[in-house]
């Protein structure tokens, strides 16, 4: 039986159940969530992160297109308040959006900033973040939302190398990761390589969620909608 962790998306764990898989996201695997813009990729990732936090699985969250404030607001809007997890230090965020030199000094050691075109620094902070979150629980989750912004601001090949290092780091440390990517935002080749780097592939098109690849199950899909409480299958 392939051990899985709860996805946090109502209906997803049932959809991915099989004779050899428990349903959910296979533990210690990596998942690419992709699809056109505005189809719920960030919401999917947020629910995944939040479910982990509820289950005492800490989370490393790398955000490249929203700041921590927007992230908190969005979570709150979907009835998923995260301030508790910032306080109890089970959530570690790295964000590359705010212009930190003009901002106020960091209040929390687990809310850190980096720069969108400095992958070296982002990766240093990922290392710290992994150490920070898996100190108390080796079972942790990691979200990178989204790879699209990284690709837009940097040479594609460089970012593919960075993503490879990132996925390896999370995997070695025992975590389960999600990377989001907006379809057609970069060269088709980039998308193909991205797909070879991950274990599972989930596509969202606005109407249907398709599990294109996942250990232990064949291709599956189901309609979904985005409600006040998030993405529901």
């Amino acid at each position: 039986m392939i051990p899985c962790i709860e996805s946090g998306i109502p209906g997803f764990d049932d959809l991915t159940k099989s004779e050899s898989a428990m349903g959910g996201i296979p533990e210690n695997s990596s998942t690419l969530v992709y699809g056109p813009a505005k189809t719920g990729k960030t919401i999917f990732s947020n629910q995944f992160a939040y479910q982990g936090l509820l289950n005492d699985e800490p989370c490393l969250y790398i955000m490249t297109d929203q700041g921590i404030k927007q992230f908190e607001d969005m979570m709150f809007d979907f009835q998923r308040p995260i301030n508790k997890f910032i306080e109890d230090k089970t959530l570690y965020t790295i964000n590359t959006t705010s212009n930190i030199s003009e901002g106020k000094p960091q209040k929390n050691e687990n809310i850190v900033s980096s720069y969108i075109n400095n992958p070296t620094d982002i990766m240093v902070k990922v290392s710290y973040g992994v150490k920070y979150v898996n100190k108390n629980n080796p079972r942790f989750r990691s979200v990178l939302d989204s790879s699209t912004t990284l690709l837009a601001y940097n040479e594609n090949m460089l970012i593919l190398r960075v993503l490879k290092a990132y996925l390896m780091r999370i995997n070695e440390a025992g975590g389960t990761s999600i990377i989001t990517y907006t379809e057609d935002s970069a060269d088709k080749k980039v998308e193909t390589i991205l797909k070879t780097m991950v274990n599972n592939i989930v596509r969202l098109d606005g109407k249907e969620l398709t599990v294109e690849a996942m250990k232990g199950i064949g291709k599956r899909s189901s309609p979904y909608q985005i409600t006040d409480e998030g993405l529901v299958i």
Binding site: T120, D121, V124, S127, R169
Partner: peptide, 9 residues
């Protein structure tokens, strides 16, 4: 020459 994740700057 740094391994990714090690501080070098």
């Amino acid at each position: 020459c740094a391994v990714p994740g090690v501080e070098c700057e």
